[in-house]
């Protein structure tokens, strides 16, 4: 039997969802026997491959790189999971949408409150420009499953992955499996 091809993607989030994934501890060994990890911040793969079965996408869509990436991920992935509150609601990443323009956010973060060397980050082709508005993933592309939490607990992640490995759609219900925050 061919193994399920799993990817994890990191957009505009704090990496906490990925940290929570690592909290799966020894179950990661079991998971490793059942899936092929084909793309992830945990490994060295430069390109998002074709034919991915399941992708966990952490983070909101906040800059031009995220936008390009999420479209590519959707094109090449059978089952896409919005992984954590930033991906699902925009969460903390989207706080800047309230009243502030991109210019005002950059000015505040890199000039006004800078202790040393106030300077706007700029390097064309390396530092991606911010989008006017941070968006949840489902505002850009269709999503197959929402796994909320900030971060989703390891047990919640395991519940979802175990169902998918059995070929079932995860039924997330109740305080332990569904709560935002």
């Amino acid at each position: 039997m061919t193994k399920l091809k799993l990817a994890t993607v990191w957009l505009g989030g704090c990496s906490g969802c990925h940290m929570s994934f690592l909290d799966l501890d020894e179950w990661l060994f079991e998971l490793a026997q059942q899936v092929d990890l084909v793309y992830s911040p945990f490994m060295d793969a430069k390109q998002y491959p074709q034919g991915v079965d399941v992708a966990l996408v952490e983070g909101a869509v906040a800059n031009t790189d995220h936008l390009e990436m999420i479209r590519k991920v959707r094109d090449r992935t059978h089952y896409l999971i919005a992984f954590g509150d930033c991906a699902i609601t925009g969460n903390v990443t989207a706080l800047r949408n309230v009243s502030a323009t991109v210019e005002a956010v950059l000015q505040r973060s890199y000039i006004d409150v800078a202790d040393l060397f106030p300077q706007l980050p700029a390097a064309e082709g390396i530092v991606p420009p911010l989008l006017d508005r941070v968006q949840p993933v489902h505002a850009i592309i269709p999503v197959d499953l929402y796994l909320p939490g900030c971060p989703p607990s390891a047990s919640r992640i395991r519940f979802a992955l175990e169902a998918l490995l059995r070929g079932d759609r995860p039924q997330l219900e109740g305080h332990d499996l569904l709560k935002f925050g």
């Binding site: 509150d85 609601t89 969460n91 903390v92 309230v98 900030c150 935002f180 925050g181």
Partner: peptide
């Protein structure tokens, strides 16, 4: 604006 993760009432 509900950001449960950083809310006093989470």
């Amino acid at each position: 604006n509900h950001i449960c993760a950083v809310c006093v009432s989470n």
